[in-house]
């Protein structure tokens, strides 16, 4: 394809091809600090193609595909090209990654131990991870936490953090502009802006750590914390994993180990500041 880039994020390497230069330029800027892939062989190929030949120029529409794709994926406007590229990488991981158990979760590390946060879109897990990442924690990822099948260690997958709607202003206020992507207004999920993780988090992207706490955050509720039973945790995590079934027995072993070893709490919170204070308190109690 005409425009291309190869990116390594944690253990996975992506070869991206695009019919347009725009999405690749955005990636080049925001992923500038990431280490180059070792030998140029990619785990996944992602293609950003015109829906039809005509739509390459006229109201350009991107069809996201690659090694793994969804036949009925809705095309995206070229203005949202960066989002399309990120979704293309997510799609490959979600459908094709087999080397770790993939949890749809954000993760941050402090004192050599990991806090994993999982929940639906809108639960606040992404924003909370991004905020903690600016306050002394190491951001490991906002979308996927990778669970090592043998050791149970959580590995980073520090892609760009995708901030939505109200979360954008919260983060913009505390992060230099050079780490922010363009504002993508009016996507299917509202306004989106991407945040590049801090350089130190990127530099340590091959460094995993054992999980110490699992949180199910829920934004927009009065502060409350309740323990979550192992059975419920297991069930919710199988639903939050895109490759649990595909991994078979090793996935079962990794997930049951995680559920029995890592305490799980549901955390309701009314605001970001409140959430950060709650997390810090919980973290102190876990030590």
């Amino acid at each position: 394809m005409k425009h291309r880039i190869t990116l390594r994020i944690g253990p996975a390497t992506f070869r991206m091809g695009s019919a347009w230069p725009g999405p690749i330029r955005s990636l080049e800027r925001l992923y500038a600090d990431y280490p180059a892939p070792a030998d140029g062989i990619a785990d996944f190929t992602v293609r950003l193609e015109p829906v039809s030949l005509l739509r390459r120029w006229l109201r350009p529409s991107i069809f996201i595909t690659g090694d793994h794709g969804l036949a009925d994926a809705a095309p995206m406007s070229l203005a949202h090209g960066l989002l399309a590229a990120e979704m293309g990488m997510n799609l490959q991981m979600a459908l094709g990654w087999r080397r770790h158990l993939l949890l749809h979760a954000s993760s941050v590390e402090k004192d050599g131990r990991v806090l994993v946060m999982t929940g639906e879109s809108g639960s606040g897990k992404s924003t909370l991870a991004a905020q903690l990442g600016e306050r002394g924690w190491r951001l490991m990822g906002d979308e996927f936490a990778l669970l090592d099948l043998e050791t149970g260690t959580v590995l980073p997958f520090p892609r760009l953090v995708s901030l939505k709607n109200r979360a954008i202003d919260v983060i913009v206020a505390e992060v230099p502009a050079a780490r922010m992507g363009p504002l993508l207004a009016g996507t299917a999920k509202g306004d989106i802006r991407h945040l590049a993780p801090r350089a130190d988090a990127v530099a340590r992207m091959d460094e995993g750590a054992p999980p110490a706490l699992l949180l199910f955050p829920r934004f927009g509720h009065a502060p409350a914390i309740r323990p979550v039973g192992q059975g419920e945790t297991f069930m919710r995590l199988t639903q939050a994993s895109t490759n649990y079934v595909a991994l078979g027995e090793p996935g079962f072993a990794a997930l049951t180990r995680f559920v029995t070893q890592v305490p799980a709490l549901a955390m309701d919170f009314p605001s970001g500041e409140e959430a950060i204070a709650m997390v810090e308190r919980l973290w102190e109690q876990q030590r």
């Binding site: 039973g229 192992q230 059975g231 419920e232 297991f234 078979g248 027995e249 079962f252 072993a253 049951t256 559920v259 029995t260």
Partner: peptide
């Protein structure tokens, strides 16, 4: 393959 949790038992059926 089975695994006992605090509130239930998990069975992994290999076949």
């Amino acid at each position: 393959m089975s695994h006992i949790l605090d509130d239930m038992v998990l069975l992994y059926h290999r076949s």
